[in-house]
Computed example of a mutant assay.
Amino acid sequence: MALASPTEERNPRTHELDTLDAPELVDTILAEDARVAGAVQAVSAPIARLVDLCVEAVAGGSTVHYVGAGTSGRLGVLDAVELLPTYSATEQMVTAHLAGGIAAMTRAVEGAEDDADAGAALVAEQCGEGDVVIGLAASGRTPFVRGSLAAARERGLSTGLVAANPQAPLARLADVAVLVDVGPEAVTGSTRMKAATAQKLVLNALSTATMVRLGTTFQNLMIDVRPTNAKLVARTVRMLVQATGESPERAAEVLEEAGGRVRVALVALLAHADVTDAEVAAVRFGKDPGRRGDPAGIRSAVASLTTKESP
């Protein structure tokens, strides 16, 4: 059985880990963590290529599927579910599949990660034409992920892999492989540490860049945020103030006139236009990842109103 993987090697910097007191332990662990950001930055190019695949899929009405087991799979679920309140993304856009099912989020499901057939069945049952399947596996060899990627390739679907093993065996099944070289863990084989931190950074960059390219932000503001609680409602008003320089009172007033639709309120405030006209312009210049420099369409909508373009 081939077990070679950087995450399973002993870390020479932490051989005497158990002899350290609490301050030394924390410093040593954090010193290892500090290496992760640079390792992820080194693979920015393949992350960007994976972004392009995801944008193309979602813009075409297809779905991005994260597939993983254990810590890797749980981080995929976390990333996918957080896209709903942040960008109003649906499961039709990005969804996650965890070996062993949703119950595996809180407790281990024995043998689930070793079931390649279950991974293949997942793709057969839940993936459609044009979808992208992204395997998440710290070791780069998980059988459940292998089954999914192999099945996706057989169907001609685009595939990706995120792993913490530069020599990941599953890379051959991926159109784009993001292989982060984080080196051995502070505690040998504990991939919930540096490998997991690297995956979180990769997924943050991947999903955020994808959503921005899909037109869910104006500048660096989350204009598609779903205001499901008091904090997010206040953030929505504050965002309009930040984007337009208007007073909180005026921003709240226009947002109410716009029926809570942030895009419409934003166009109205920036163009100093009537909400009805702003709505027409916002619809005319809807989200389009192919519109360079303005995927959200906000700048184009405002320009159409301020230059007296006829809709």
Rank of each mutant, 00 (worst) to 15 (best):
G68A: 05
A282T: 02
D294C: 11
V264Y: 01
D288L: 09
V212A: 14
D79W: 01
V132F: 11
K308P: 00
D21A: 14
L50G: 05
A171W: 03
A301H: 01
T228V: 12
D175C: 09
V182L: 08
I47F: 11
L270K: 12
L255Q: 02
T90S: 15
A120G: 13
A303C: 04
D181I: 10
L3R: 12
A124P: 00
L136R: 03
P295K: 14
P143R: 06
A174V: 11
L78W: 05
L221Y: 15
A108D: 07
D175N: 10
A138I: 01
G61I: 12
P23T: 07
L25S: 08
A258E: 02
A2G: 06
L232I: 06
L161S: 03
G128H: 11
P23E: 05
R261D: 12
A96M: 04
E82R: 08
R250V: 11
T188H: 10
L149S: 03
A2H: 08
E113Q: 14
I298T: 01
L269R: 02
V132S: 06
L179H: 06
L157F: 07
L221T: 14
A243N: 07
H15S: 12
L30P: 01
V55F: 12
D181E: 15
T236Q: 15
C54M: 11
A152S: 07
A37D: 05
G68D: 01
R35K: 13
R226I: 04
K308V: 02
I29N: 04
A282W: 00
P46F: 15
T86G: 11
R263N: 06
D27Q: 13
R213T: 05
T307I: 04
V262A: 09
L17V: 11
V36M: 09
A120N: 02
A116E: 07
A163T: 04
A37T: 13
V77M: 04
R235V: 04
A2E: 10
